[in-house]
Design a protein around this nucleic acid. Structure first.
Length: 598
RNA sequence: GGGGGAGUAGUUAAGUUGGUUAUAACGCCGGCUUGUCACGCCGGAGGCCGCGGGUUCAAGUCCCGUCUCUCCCGCCA
């Protein structure tokens, strides 16, 4: 038998750097890794060796290993090396309590440099941060930093925990096509032209929605998939053009059963992640309650500052802004900010008023509650009895500041909801260690689009209307609730789902309401309607955003931090330089031609 | 599509009402150094001040445009 030859034999490691402890003292070991740092004391050379598991100090003594010392003196940091040596317990005062492996060090006998690094574009350190652009351009270096690496490893662990939990609940891991059928409703799609079909093409899926429903029709009970989804929309800190969903579906499902199942899954994952009973139950609130109380359909409940309705109390107050709002069927709402009078300078109040104006409100009223009465531009419109009534209703005490908005219901709620979040940030009211999960249910199913003069699905057109509302589908679509739910945490939408329509007649009625002609329906979704006619189980499910969940559980500011190779806000990859110009040959094969539009 | 923030050495930043040769730290190069771990000490090199116009005797600094990164609104069924 011949032995294959290798030009540069790698020393197979016996241990990983981060795992060695005092118990290993005396062992002969072989390690592989990166030269994180070297400290040359002249008579002694210390090298920090790093691999995925952590760091370990290597020591080279020129008196006993002159040639090795000379060899390693000039090797740049971040070169890859193999180290052979002996584990030694460090003398007492030389132990480093800050370091996981600080009790020991490796006395080097032999070191092989596998690959020498050039001078680095930035330091591999958690102390100084390079700019975002530079970090993304050299993301593979950025990922060597402990804090960055740690978040990616935690994301992987979170995905593992979801797989484990979902499989224990009977979910099976399916794959569905990435070359998807284009269905141009909802988010903008990434299109994939086809070489074999001039003028036709695929789209990358915004979610595997239709295929997972079809798997239910096939007779598979419980589907899940941790899957990439694509949306060609503008980015945010919590949005990337490609992102990962934990996509799930259950057949013969009811709404409470889906919520209970994912209550359990979330509890299992989150508590295992933290290693303690972080959440015991996930509260459920309705969309209406969320809007009335927090002015948001994805409220951050780590702080209070709830919205309070003053409409009934200020009916008699002769203040034009209130009267105009109420006469148009609007509302007057208030937020009480406890004991922060000094914070609300003229400048701050002007800033928040401007914020409200940018969001469609006439302005922002304010009241500084004081022992001797109100300091407020609005005070003169209130009688002493009205002041008393409002103050009692709000539970406001001297030193509190009351902020008031009047106008159309949704405008007031969304405006104050935004103000609520802004105030929490400015006043630092958020308990950052908290993780507050929440189900939001009973969403409206349809929303009237003034521009398009038509009804649009709030969720997606396969969402079942609430059972008891189906009869009003044609007569009063605005009052119909969806059998849909969102999972919300700390002000982020972490996922959403619904019970799906499983009856072709109902699906046709919904399509009709949305203004799709039978021909359009047939062309776009004929395959789905046919499937529903061939024995479809009642079913429902959910899609959870893995990136956002990982962002929150790792305490990150952006999903970028928990994605190994994220894109910039303009959708570019600074590492590889995509998107890049397409070759004329490539375009021509796809029957495409690049043309500048006027 | 719109609004805000940022861009100065390899990196992170400072740079006053426009005014001598654009600073500092880390990194880099050379030297010294036996217990460091953000090692220390001495010396040195390193700049299209994002890019393009303009104002001015004079621009890193003021004005206009543009590019890139970033936060937000729109958008994300």
């Amino acid at each position: 038998m011949n032995t294959p030859q290798s030009s540069s034999p790698v020393w197979l490691r016996t241990h990983r750097c981060g795992t060695l402890t005092a118990a290993d003292a005396g062992r002969t070991v072989t390690l592989n890794g990166w030269l994180a740092k070297s400290r040359n004391l002249g008579g002694l050379l210390f090298l920090d060796l790093r691999d995925q598991s952590g760091k370990l100090q290597v020591v080279v003594n020129p008196e006993t290993h002159g040639a090795l010392f000379h060899q390693m003196e000039s090797v740049r940091q971040e070169s890859t090396v193999g180290v052979r040596g002996t584990v030694r317990l460090r003398p007492g005062e030389m132990q480093n309590a800050q370091m996981a492996t600080g009790a020991v060090e490796i006395v080097a006998e032999e070191i092989q440099v596998y690959s020498e690094s050039e001078v680095l574009p930035f330091a591999i350190s958690d102390i100084t941060e390079a700019s975002d652009a530079l970090r993304l351009q050299y993301r593979y270096l950025d990922l060597r930093r402990d804090s960055v690496k740690e978040k990616i490893l935690q994301r992987i662990r979170i995905a593992q925990l979801f797989r484990k939990s979902l499989e224990s609940h009977g979910f099976l891991d399916f794959e569905t096509p990435y070359l998807y059928k284009s269905t141009p409703e909802g988010a903008r799609e990434f299109l994939v032209p086809s070489r074999m079909h001039p003028g036709s093409g695929y789209a990358l899926p915004q979610s595997p929605q239709l295929f997972k429903q079809l798997l239910m029709v096939s007779g598979f009970d419980r589907y899940y998939q941790i899957v990439k989804c694509f949306r060609d929309e503008d980015m945010r800190a919590d949005r990337q053009p490609e992102f990962t969903q934990i996509d799930c579906e259950i057949s013969f499902a009811t709404l409470p059963m889906v919520l209970e199942t994912f209550d359990a899954v979330m509890k299992e994952v989150v508590n295992a992640f933290y290693g303690c009973e972080k959440i015991t139950s996930i509260p459920r609130i309705t969309y209406q309650y969320a809007m009335d109380t927090y002015g948001s359909d994805k409220p951050d409940t780590r702080f209070d500052l709830t919205l309070q309705d003053l409409s009934a109390l200020v009916h008699e107050v002769e203040f034009a802004v209130f009267q105009s709002a109420l006469s148009q069927g609007g509302i007057v709402n208030a937020i009480v900010v406890p004991q922060q009078e000094a914070f609300f300078s003229r400048k701050r109040l002007d800033e928040y008023t401007e914020l409200m104006k940018q969001n469609g409100l006439a302005g922002l009223g304010w009241i500084k509650v004081q022992a001797e009465g109100w300091q407020s531009p609005m005070a003169k419109f209130f009688s002493p009895a009205q002041i008393e009534a409002v103050q009692t209703a709000l539970g406001a005490k001297p030193g509190d500041v009351v902020l008031v908005a009047a106008g159309l219901r949704k405008t007031v709620q969304l405006g104050l909801g935004l103000l609520r979040n802004t105030l929490a940030k400015h006043l630092n009211l958020t308990r950052h260690e908290d993780v507050r999960f929440l189900w939001v249910t009973d969403f409206p199913a349809f929303e009237y689009n003034e521009e398009g003069k038509r009804w649009a699905a709030c969720h997606h057109p396969f969402t079942s209307p609430a059972f008891c509302d189906i009869e009003r589908l044609e007569t009063d679509p605005g009052s119909v609730h969806a059998a849909a739910y969102d999972l919300v945490c700390n002000g982020f939408e972490l996922g959403g789902g619904s019970i799906r329509i499983h009856q072709p007649e109902l699906q046709a009625r919904v399509f009709a309401l949305l203004g799709l002609t039978p021909e359009e329906t047939e062309q776009k979704f004929g395959f789905l309607l046919k499937a529903l006619r061939l024995g479809a189980p009642p079913h429902g499910g959910i899609a959870l955003g893995l990136d956002r969940i990982a962002m929150i559980l790792t305490g990150s500011d952006a999903i970028r931090d928990v994605i190994p190779f994220p894109k910039t806000q303009r959708g570019t990859c600074l590492l590889t330089g995509s998107p890049s110009p397409l070759s004329p040959q490539g375009l021509s094969e796809l029957h495409l031609q690049w043309k500048e539009l006027p």
